[in-house]
Write a protein that binds this DNA or RNA. Structure first.
Lengths: 247, 247
DNA sequence: TTGAAACGTTCCATTAATGGGAACACTGTA
DNA sequence: TACAGTGTTCCCATTAATGGAACGTTTCAA
């Protein structure tokens, strides 16, 4: 709404390079975004000065490695990520399947971290990606236990609430089964805060061979460990700073 | 040089948030960068719209998670990263120490990937960080075998060239020893291309207990595997695109 | 070999976005 | 209560971004 138009155009360029998947030429960018070549060139120059954009050997543009430093920095500031890392690795190793840590940020579900399993088929979402809220097991959990998320049928809501876990079979990606459990952080008083979701994704046959119960008990234990590590690990709720809450 | 000043200011803000380490208030940003509050506010609004910047519960600003998606995307485009990943994991597991993959990008050495070992002391550089070229083992390798890098004494150059590996003890970080080997990609004709450096960092006592020879032979084998995987794994040198080389 | 069409780059007058002061509502401190 | 600090929103003269046109190369088709 209110904003610096130039910055938004620069971000358009940056995200376009990200979405493109492969390196893109200047003229292609201009056509895709309805920007004159000279504007593109100027924006890209500024982005390249900070290595937000890089060029391949043919001069085409692609996202730069400064983004990696910034992105890892952003991830590092998420307390739940450092608390969950060891558990993600342990469960990915134990189950042999990919384990996700998914959080609600900016009203959208994002993959905060993941550790891949040894299976031949691996789930597609990458770290940092947004995942759809309405059809994923993580989305179901947030709509039942969290604040965001869409509404669910009363029957399904009751089942998930009672079970403390959500399952998704083939709805998101065909042939893929997912089981997700909530990660609670105890806040001292009242019920805990839903800080993330722990999920395992596996090809459906493999998922069945492991067994829902086995997966569920492992994940529930893992989620509990993460919650404990967050409460213990100095996630001190500092209130000693000046300023007011947004909105 | 030629550029969009607004974009550069926005990037100033972004990198400032990254460097700050903790969330920063609007006025603090303005003071640090000599920008008026209204300008900061506008820039931050545009950055927040795309989740390049996020706010904590007190309204202070911090890097946003969209950067994570973009950064992982940039990393994924580095062929050497995907080729090296399994080797990094294997060696980090086998040696129990942190293994780095470092590449020369934009005339600077960057940590392209790393896998942490089990040791209590872990090396500090993070994925995406720039490491100094003049005092690191990786820098020495690039100055001997690569194009960039600073000059080295003839004696040291001869030793590294003959050995095919570089060692650094306490020069970079006190108490830390590093051994690095080059990763060559065979290009069909002529000598291979130096595409990255594989390095192990360990606390000096632990480093000695493992033994330089043991580390070196393991790393050399690992680097050879990476080179093979790159040549085999479809790093096809496509020349079917339009465009000319830069500069 | 020649022409046309693509590429990325540079220039510059026009125009639109920006800077930065001032005023705002608000919170914690003296 | 008064004060100093937040973050937010106006506003207008000034400034800096804009984008069309021209340029030199490279590639491809004729």
């Amino acid at each position: 709404m209110a904003g610096a138009a130039t910055v938004e155009k620069a971000l358009d360029v940056l995200f376009h390079l990200h979405d493109a998947g492969e390196a893109v030429g200047l003229s292609d960018i201009g056509r895709a975004l309805n920007l004159p070549k000279s504007s593109c060139h100027r924006l890209l120059s500024s982005l390249m000065d900070r290595e937000m954009v890089d060029r391949d050997e043919w001069g085409r543009y692609r996202p730069g490695l400064a983004l990696l430093s910034l992105g890892i920095g952003a991830q590092r500031r998420e307390p739940v990520v450092s608390a969950a890392r060891p558990i993600l690795e342990r469960e990915a190793e134990g189950l042999g399947e990919t384990v996700f840590l998914i959080g609600l940020r900016h009203r959208r579900l994002r993959v905060l971290d993941k550790v891949e399993g040894s299976g031949f088929l691996r789930a597609a979402p990458r770290i940092g990606d947004v995942v759809p809220a309405d059809i994923t097991a993580a989305g179901k959990l947030y709509s039942v236990f969290g604040e965001g998320g869409d509404e669910l049928s009363p029957a399904e809501t009751r089942e998930i609430a009672g079970r403390g876990a959500a399952v998704n079979r083939d709805a998101w990606i065909n042939g893929l089964s997912v089981l997700a459990v909530p990660v609670w952080q105890e806040s001292g008083q009242g019920p805990g805060d839903l800080v993330a979701v722990l999920a395992v994704a596996a090809a459906s046959p493999r998922f069945d061979r492991l067994g829902e119960n086995e997966i569920e008990t492992r994940l529930l234990a893992g989620a509990a460990s993460i919650g404990e590590r967050m409460s213990a690990g100095g996630v001190s709720r500092r209130h000693d700073r000046i300023g007011r809450k947004p909105r």
